[in-house]
Amino acid sequence: MLPLSNANSTKTNLATFAITLILTILIAIFLLFPKYGTYKAAKDAMSNAQSSLDSTLDKQKTIDGLIEKMKSDSEELQRVDYAIPDKPDISTVYALIETQAKAAALSLGATQAVDLTDQIDTSTIVGVGNGTSMTPGAKTQQNKLPSATLGAIDVNFTVTGSLEGYVSMLQGIQRSLRLFDIQSIDLTSDSEKKVITFKTTLRTYYQK
């Protein structure tokens, strides 16, 4: 058997160890756990902030896409505005015809514009042999407007030169953004001068 003093010493050591262990656990609980809680809260806050940022970036991408679409739509509208302007702008049409005729080495003759906006189609066309006749005061079917919101102008002009030059001129007019429809082309040739005279009617439109 151990002496009584040794037994008491062993009990004291065990008690001291137990107390030390309990204190260590308490220190871990009161010191380490709050730090972990703070870290977890910070991590959660960072995760929420990242999610919010991702959501904001997605919204920004959507907004950027809408802005680009608006720019594209604006460019399309500008092209439409040029194709069918909000006024007749005959001087621009004259300038275009003159420029293209000169570029195609054609001699430009008389040029005339007729506004068809007020010419409402009320005609009754009746076949008479190989020709046609109209009721008095009626307008031809050719003057019928495609829309009540559009005005139309017939531009009549004469150019003289080669067939290749005339085709080049029409292609140049076609490449312009303004909308044109060819209504008629009449030609006469001069065998001595080896040139052709083209009488042309183009129709262009504007918004009322």
Rank of each mutant, 00 (worst) to 15 (best):
A103V: 10
G129K: 04
A103P: 06
V126Y: 01
Q112Y: 11
G129T: 04
V128N: 10
T122A: 06
Q141W: 07
L108P: 03
I120S: 08
A110D: 08
A104E: 08
A113S: 13
A101C: 15
S107G: 05
T122Q: 06
T124F: 04
Q141M: 12
T111P: 01
T135C: 01
A138C: 02
Q119A: 06
L106T: 15
K144N: 09
Q141I: 10
V128S: 03
A101D: 11
Q142H: 08
Q141D: 06
S107L: 12
L108K: 05
I125N: 11
V128L: 13
T140R: 14
T132C: 03
G127V: 13
G109N: 03
T132V: 13
P146N: 14
T117V: 05
T124C: 01
D115G: 04
G137C: 02
D115C: 11
A105C: 02
I120A: 10
P136H: 01
P146I: 08
Q119N: 09
A104C: 06
A103C: 06
V114E: 15
M134S: 12
Q142G: 04
A103S: 15
D121F: 15
S133N: 02
S107N: 11
D115S: 01
N130D: 13
G127R: 15
G129Q: 06
D115A: 03
T111I: 13
T135R: 07
P136C: 00
Q112G: 00
S123C: 01
S123E: 05
M134T: 02
I125M: 13
G109H: 07
A105D: 14
V128C: 00
K144H: 01
S133C: 00
M134L: 11
P136V: 02
V114R: 10
K139V: 08
S147G: 03
Q142F: 08
T124M: 03
D115W: 02
Q119I: 13
T111N: 00
V126L: 08
A104M: 06
A113D: 11
A101Y: 12
S107Y: 07
T124P: 01
